[in-house]
Design a protein around this nucleic acid. Sequence first.
DNA 1: CTATGGAACGCTTAG
DNA 2: CGTTCCATAG
Length: 807
Amino acid sequence: MSSFDDFDAFEGASLSARAMAARPMPYLDELNPAQRAAVEALDGPVLMLAGAGTGKTKALTARIVHLLNTGRARPNEILSVTFTNKAAREMKNRVSGLLGQAVEGMPWLGTFHSICVKLLRRHAELVGLKSNFTILDTDDQLRLLKQLVQAAGIDDKRWPARQLAGVIDNWKNRALTPDKIPAADAGAYNHRGAELYAQYQVRLRELNAVDFGDLLLHMVVIFQTHEDVLEQYQRWFRYILVDEYQDTNVAQYMWLRLLAQRHRNICCVGDDDQSIYGWRGAEVGNILRFEKDFPGAHVVRLEQNYRSTPHILAAASSVIRGNANRLGKELWTEAQEGEKLRLIGHWDGEEEARWIGEEIESMQGGTRGMRGFSLDDMAILVRASHQMRAFEDRFLTIGLPYRVIGGPRFYERMEIRDAMAYFRLVVSPSDDLAFERVVNTPKRGLGDKAQQTIQQIARANGVPLLDGAALAVEQGAIKGKGAKALGEFVVNIARWGRMMRGTVAVDSDDVLDDLAQPMASTPEVSHIELAQIILDESGYTEMWQNDKTPEAPGRLENLKELVKALESFENIQGFLEHVSLVMDNDSDDGGAKVSIMTLHAAKGLEFPVVFLPGWEDGLFPSQRSMDESGVKGLEEERRLAYVGITRAEEVCTISFAGNRRVFGQWQSQMPSRFVDELPEEHVEVLTPPGLYGGGYGAAASAGMSGGMTPGMESRVASANVYNSPGWKRLQSRQGDRPVSQPKESRNTVIDLQAVSAYTMGERVFHDKFGYGEIVGIEGDKLEIAFDKAGTKKVVSRYICSADDVPF
DNA sequence: CTATGGAACGCTTAG
DNA sequence: CGTTCCATAG
């Protein structure tokens, strides 16, 4: 635990600085002059202003290699931070590629969060934690806050715990501890925010837990209050590199500045036009202020774009020009002209999904004079995750393989979180949140009352809940069948703990004493077997086996996967750590797939073909963002549009729908104001299928003054896209489902006849779930095992025989 | 104590 | 529309 491997000299490794110094540096020849300047300015502060697609990752990785090659630093003396695990992984891979060997030797290349965990484990005691603290996810955090809110006698209907979580998060992003809350924030959360924040931090300490924001906050506090610790790291990290600097919040900024103070060898890469995380505390000001913070900083601009065609680039530039506050950059490219940006409007969201689905299918083979693209080359980027559903539904129906990036993640599923809670409890018996999650899962006859009793006893004795439970059983405070089950539960947790640590039973009735036992060298069973044992003997596996809901088999499948995932870790602890930080689930079974993700998740990625659906005012730009942050919010939305367009290499298609379902209600809306900001000469308007046409170029904006905000004045008045009679008709319609919906697109399922004569085993088709087989019939309700969507009960009129499907 | 159904609420965005 | 939370019956 306390080993300092990451700081030791590299003896065996062939990466010794001296050996490297003699090597040739071919990577330098592959850089353009600006990139090369950024790479070669090794010493002192450097700010790299890198526009989208200008090869900043290339420059950054080359810089790392150059640092090693010139003997400036050893691999473990370079601190290199990113925001996402994906970016960190990519950097590692590219550095290895350039070096021609794996980089085991870069322990300090990672996300802010993962690096802070590492540091905090070493110095946990300085902020009142133990080194084996647990990292709470949003769910745990919320449950904890809810408890505190209720205990404080606050009506959590009027003042939801979510709101408090937001307030606290916001403070942590600004590196504010409870005693530093400014007077201006006194009114937060009904004037009780600061008080509850303080309580929350106390509670976290009692639980030996931290939330995401704490990882940075605690380290900043440690650096500020323990000069010796800070100095040790200041000395060690000779060179610091920061990716996506425009996204740093105050806490991250302070953290970096503290660490960089000594050597001042800090290189920050960023693009103010791609700052899209203002809502979580990112300060574009950090990038604008860099030269003041580090006088004499070397500023390099990367403006040659290697990613997109001129049309795409021009469209993106035109949109971002609508923002007042920017450093200003002009991207240019030598690329061939290529396709114009394509724009299309649709009747409703479903048709939009249908059209994009068809477009994707035809683009695979090459269409309209374009080359053919693989599904892997194509991505759909949405503003809000709920937009994904329409596409998933449609793609499921037509059997188009897709992958959702950053969607509901594997490790957030109920069964996985339950299983993990068992593991957590075995690893740290004092993990009260894990205890609460699984004491009565599977049902052990321990309801609210029993759990309250346990809470009381635990609190009265000042012990964790698990010990409280043990005491409750001993004292007979819990009666009936619950008592026996609870006793078994407690004994089991302790037993699995011993199995994990390989220590033979210690004579003790205090479960926590077991934790104090030193790690034995040879556990009785492998951690993989142990995981399986825990799931089986706890009755958890059985619970799902007995569950007859259609999801149960999938859940068991997921549990199997979970156990399998343990194989790549040395022990359960390591696995838990990984999961709490990484959480992303990149398991991919090979085949080519279209990617669906949010615009935020798309940052840093690129695709030959990009679809940008849902460009409607209120959705994008998001109404909420504009309401809450006014022009600032609108500008951030515009940067998001810029990020979206610049993801595209060859073909970029923007679309919007006149009608959309919101909470089950039909609503109609205007095309996004960003549509108006697209330069006509770089846009081709595709005529949508259906009754109304795209009357592009028609002037005027009468009747559009609905919700004017200050930002709208700047909108380009000329090219008002949808002014055709058909479009105007759409505007006036509200509420109910549009009457004359054009449904003649060829993929539409024709009239769904109400046939009741189905037979078991028959192949059928459902508009939403796709193909399936009938496994049960009850009157007019059919139980159908769908190929892709699981087993569902459906009324027969929504079903047609597979043979009748027109495609 | 659990199972069940109906009301209420929610759709920013992420590690 | 889908999910979650709460009240009531079993």
